[in-house]
Nucleic acid binder design. Structure first.
Length: 219
DNA sequence: GCGACAG
DNA sequence: ATCTTGTCGC
């Protein structure tokens, strides 16, 4: 396909080029299918999984898992370069075409506004956004304790995402747009995907899938 | 120089 | 991400 950056300097240059291709548009308002993506590690080996759920009842429609090696060391801000190759390969193996990608990490809530969700969105040109478990950048006011409460995530004066409470009394998640979707739609979809747990069912399904696969690597 | 820092 | 016991609660 193409060369992959081998140094932080090269990776920064790639982000600088690709970020101009991010498209900020509303919707998709009623996606029929939603995909969750996640990666699990075992030493220098990894397993990437993509699970497509039916947006109506959250049932599994398709699953794809690939094993491989991290494509880059973990560096805050350059995290995407580590998992993107394996995730793209898994996406290629899907039979069911997802309408939205729900990524494990940040979208525009990134120091250069180009986190994993934006990166994957641009490379696939599919609607994409991120749901992170912890913060990378930005400040925010305390979020209401009830499910659905949200507080804008602001970095350098601009709103880069939302801190969203998906379960009453449980630590909120960090939602940010990636590509071809808006923040309100992303938050609304996230709430539909969290009928019971803190993290979206998409993320949970992908997490289970790649963990099973990574366990298989060692046996 | 001292923290902060997606997964 | 991953390393890790017991423990509180539905």
């Amino acid at each position: 396909m193409q060369s992959w950056p081998r140094t932080e300097e090269e990776a920064l240059a790639v982000q600088d080029t690709l970020r101009s291709r991010v498209v900020l548009t509303p919707g998709p308002m009623s996606p029929a299918t939603v995909a969750g993506l996640d990666v699990a590690y075992d030493g220098d080996r990894l397993a990437a999984a993509v699970v497509v759920l039916d947006a109506a009842d959250l049932s599994v429609r398709d699953t794809a898992v690939v094993r491989g090696r991290p494509a880059f060391p973990y560096v805050p801000g350059l995290f995407a370069f580590r998992e993107v190759p394996a995730l793209l390969e898994a996406l290629d193996r899907l039979t069911v075409r997802p309408d939205v990608l729900v990524c494990d990490g940040q979208g525009l809530a990134h120091p250069r506004r180009f986190g994993l969700a934006a990166h994957l969105g641009v490379l696939t040109d599919m609607p994409s956004y991120g749901v992170g478990k912890t913060r990378l950048v930005g400040e925010y006011e305390p979020v209401g304790e009830e499910r659905g409460a949200r507080s804008p995530l602001i970095d350098s004066g601009e709103t880069v995402g939302a801190v969203l409470r998906t379960r009453a009394g449980v630590k909120p998640v960090f939602v940010s747009v990636g590509h071809r979707i808006d923040l309100d739609t992303a938050c609304a979809l996230t709430l539909r995907l969290t009928p019971r747990y803190r993290l979206p069912e998409t993320t949970r399904a992908a997490d289970h899938a790649c963990r099973l696969a990574v366990a298989t690597i060692r046996m």
